[in-house]
Amino acid sequence: MIRALALCLTLMASGVSAQSDPATAADAAATRLDRAAQMLADARTGSDRVAALTETVRAYEDGLVAMREGLRRASIRERTLSIQFEARRDELSRLLGILSTISNAPTPLLLLHPTGPTGTARSGMILADVAPALQRDAEQLRAELEELELLRTLQASASDTLEEGLQGAQEARTALSQAIADRVDLPRRYVEDGTAMRDLIESTETLSAFASGLSGTVAMEVEGAPQPDVSARRGTLSMPVEGTLIRGYQEADAAGVTRPGWLIATRPEALVTTPAVATMRYAGPLLDYGNVVILEPGSGVLFVFAGLGEVYGEVGEVIPEGAPIGLMGGAAPDIQAILTDSVEGADASRSETLYVEIRDGQDTVDPAEWFVPMTGSSE
């Protein structure tokens, strides 16, 4: 399955060779799939297997993004060439007629002119001047026709390519969920007090109050457990999910409501990972935020991620950097929807939103202070 998709990605890269970005991304995704396959073969522990499958899911996600972008650009280029050919229909017809006449006429007749030697000499000089231009036009026409045929072939084969990629991504997500359920080798900082956690959930009315009350849900500290400390990483952390920033810190939405965090648009079922080594403080539904994951990467610091469709991990575990903590909700679009989006130049596939909030002590801070600059637009 991994090698089959790698071949599909290589086809995509060659099909849009004039557009270096998706081609390069496709090649990189294929390489990551190979590396992930080797990691999976070499895995010796539950954490090794989770890491390998995480890389596999990420590679599939990147590959599908590259294919979407490649299809979008191929569709735009195909449409541009078709419009150009339609606008130049009469000109191209005359060019083809001239080339056909020249190719079919006997060579001696081309060298003779009815007015005699002088006319023949003049016509020869004109033909010598015109022939190179005709040749260039003919070569450009041939190249554009070949490109148009290649683009249409690529679009026609996109359905099978996308189907294989979507199936591979889904199989990798399923395997990842099972590997996380089977994982037993993560260190644990503390044992949760289930009763205290239930009481906190039932009595909490705000996210702030819930975060403040987490300290009372610890039943027992585990002696000698690692203590994550993210303080030195401030401003350098990678984002937990691939997406686009649509609302920044304390920015008002259409209703004028502000929230002390980021809102990130993602694709359905996108993988969410921890930006740094952190203790899992909470994972599950909370208030009106949907599924929420709260991580503690350092003393007094909490990372809050809300809006997930599925969450991974157990409270009290120390989660490695880059390890999955959940998947976004929603359902992946079908193949026809992806092709329609590509043809229309749209990116309606970013239909899910992840809310990211960072708390330092009792205060919230702008996530921009912790994460590397993120591309996108805030509204």
Rank of each mutant, 00 (worst) to 15 (best):
T101L: 10
A133S: 07
A131R: 13
A133F: 04
S93I: 07
L92K: 04
Q84L: 12
L96F: 08
L134P: 01
L95Q: 03
G119N: 09
E86Y: 07
Q140L: 15
L64P: 11
L53K: 05
L112C: 09
Y60I: 03
I102S: 07
R89G: 00
T101P: 00
I83S: 07
P132I: 06
E139V: 08
R49V: 08
E61H: 08
I126Q: 14
L92H: 06
E69L: 14
T56D: 11
I83V: 13
V57F: 05
G46H: 08
R88S: 12
G119E: 06
V65A: 14
E149K: 15
E91R: 12
A66C: 03
L110D: 02
E86T: 14
T54Q: 06
A128D: 04
G46Y: 04
T80R: 13
A138Q: 02
R58V: 02
R88F: 07
F85S: 03
E146R: 11
R79T: 10
T56V: 09
A52C: 10
L145D: 12
A74H: 08
L110S: 05
S47G: 04
T120H: 01
T56K: 05
T153L: 15
G70D: 01
D90N: 03
H113Q: 00
A133W: 02
V130C: 00
R122S: 07
L127C: 01
S100N: 13
D137E: 14
G63K: 15
N104V: 07
D48R: 07
E149T: 13
T80W: 09
R72I: 00
L92G: 11
E146D: 14
E139G: 00
P106C: 00
I83L: 13
L134R: 00
L134N: 09
R72N: 05
L112G: 02
S82L: 13
T153I: 12
L92R: 12
L71A: 10
D137Q: 12
A52D: 05
H113S: 09
L134C: 03
Q135T: 14
L111W: 09
F85R: 15
L109G: 00
T118R: 12
L112F: 13
L99V: 13
E55R: 11
L112V: 15
P106A: 00
R79S: 11
L99M: 10
R89S: 11
V65S: 04
A66I: 06
L111S: 09
R152G: 08
A143N: 12
A143K: 09
V130Y: 03
T54A: 06
R73Q: 06
L127Q: 01
A121F: 10
L64M: 07
R58G: 08
A131E: 04
T153E: 15
R142F: 06
A128V: 04
S123I: 03
A59Y: 03
E147Q: 15
L96I: 03
P114K: 12
L127V: 02
L95K: 01
A131M: 07
S103I: 00
P132R: 07
P114F: 06
E61Y: 04
L53I: 13
T115F: 09
E69K: 09
A143C: 01
M125E: 11
V50A: 05
Y60D: 04
G70F: 05
A87N: 12
E139F: 10
A131W: 05
P117E: 10
L53P: 05
Q84F: 09
R136C: 03
E91A: 13
D48Q: 10
T107D: 02
M67R: 00
F85K: 07
A74P: 06
A74E: 02
E55T: 12
R79F: 04
R142G: 00
